[in-house]
């Protein structure tokens, strides 16, 4: 494993089949829900990628596909050119050590009957890290002291319900980082937490990722927070990437109407700047039978006839800045 450890995702699809009541009383019609619909991206070691979008746009399905909690319908995930399917067949644990995930709700992440000690040590034992029990405990204590849970001895014998959300989320992140993963996926890691704690968790994630050269995929619908942590950003809508690029490029010069809408709806505490909020109607529809045209067309404020006829191709706007919309003049 060199420094250039990369994750490559090629044309990833995940379709779910759903049975819907048909015309006849007893007949059912099969419909396909396209949760992830052709996603490709590349991530290098040490990079932080933010994924934003409304709820129901396939962000979490993407995370599940990457960690192999769900299997893709089509497409491949390559780690350094090695297919993830091969990897998981050969050595399940090595795959799990390569890519780890932090979940949204820290209270649901842990077994309520296990003490913090057991939670951490069990994981280490499963992955054959450390030789003896006391070895593993000391690893856990060291790591906990480093992230500000001190004295760590106090926490070891507590149970998850005895800790606050912020502390639990720290332990959740710590547990994944002890395995030294090459990739970490954080699925809305701060949305359940208090404002005053959020900043600390973000900072901790940032430090850990920087120190160990881990690539991070940060999934969130909070654009402000995502901006602080990520180097590049991907905007998803109904299973497709509509715009991607370097964080500040995308957020300061958004070109896709969906990105513009998201950003304009983003609340700010700065009283001086009053931006015009772009209003769009409704919520993202369930991705069943989305037409031949642009998926965003029905809600778009710029829609024209062409939008309903064909899906726009991805265009290059600047270096490392892509978007799919008919009304972009590519350079």
């Amino acid at each position: 494993m060199g420094d250039n450890y990369t994750l490559e995702v090629n044309n990833l699809f995940k379709h779910y089949t759903q049975r819907i009541k048909g015309n006849n009383r007893f007949s059912t019609v099969k419909k396909t829900v396209k949760a992830v619909d052709g996603i490709s991206f590349k991530l290098e070691a040490g990079e932080v990628m933010g994924v934003i979008g409304e709820s129901g746009c396939g962000k979490s399905t993407l995370a599940k596909l990457l960690t192999k909690l769900e299997y893709p319908t089509q497409g491949e995930i390559l780690f350094n050119g090695e297919s993830s399917d091969e990897m998981i067949k050969k050595d399940r644990l090595r795959y799990k050590r390569t890519i780890q995930m932090v979940f949204q709700n820290p209270f649901d992440t842990f077994d309520p009957r296990n003490s913090i000690e057991k939670i951490i040590v069990e994981t280490l034992k499963m992955h054959n890290i450390g030789k003896t029990h006391s070895d593993r405990v000391s690893t856990a204590i060291n790591a906990m002291e480093k992230i500000g849970l001190s004295p760590a001895g106090d926490y070891l014998h507590r149970f998850p319900h005895e800790l606050s959300g912020g502390q639990l989320q720290r332990i959740s992140i710590l547990r994944t980082m002890l395995l030294k993963p090459k990739f970490l996926i954080a699925d809305e890691p701060v949305s359940m937490l208090d404002v005053s704690v959020r900043a600390d968790i973000i900072k901790m994630l940032q430090d850990l990722v920087r120190n160990s050269d881990t690539a991070l995929i940060f999934i969130s619908h909070d654009i402000n927070t995502t901006r602080y942590i990520s180097d590049k950003i991907v905007v998803m809508y109904l299973g497709r990437i509509v715009e991607s690029g370097t964080t500040d490029y995308v957020l300061h010069n958004p070109v896709h109407p969906y990105t513009k809408t998201l950003i304009s709806n983003c609340a700010s505490i700065n009283m001086d700047e009053k931006t015009d909020v772009i209003k769009i109607e409704g919520e993202p529809p369930t991705p069943i039978d989305n037409g031949p045209g642009c998926y965003f067309a029905p809600r778009c404020y710029m829609k024209k006839d062409i939008c309903f006829k064909e899906y726009p191709e991805q265009k290059v706007i600047e270096e490392n800045h892509f978007a799919s919309c008919h009304f972009i003049n590519s350079n």
Binding site: S196, R198, I202, I223, T225, I269, N270
Partner: peptide, 8 residues
């Protein structure tokens, strides 16, 4: 207020 991230 300080712990609130801003867009700009």
């Amino acid at each position: 207020l300080k712990s609130f991230p801003t867009l700009k």
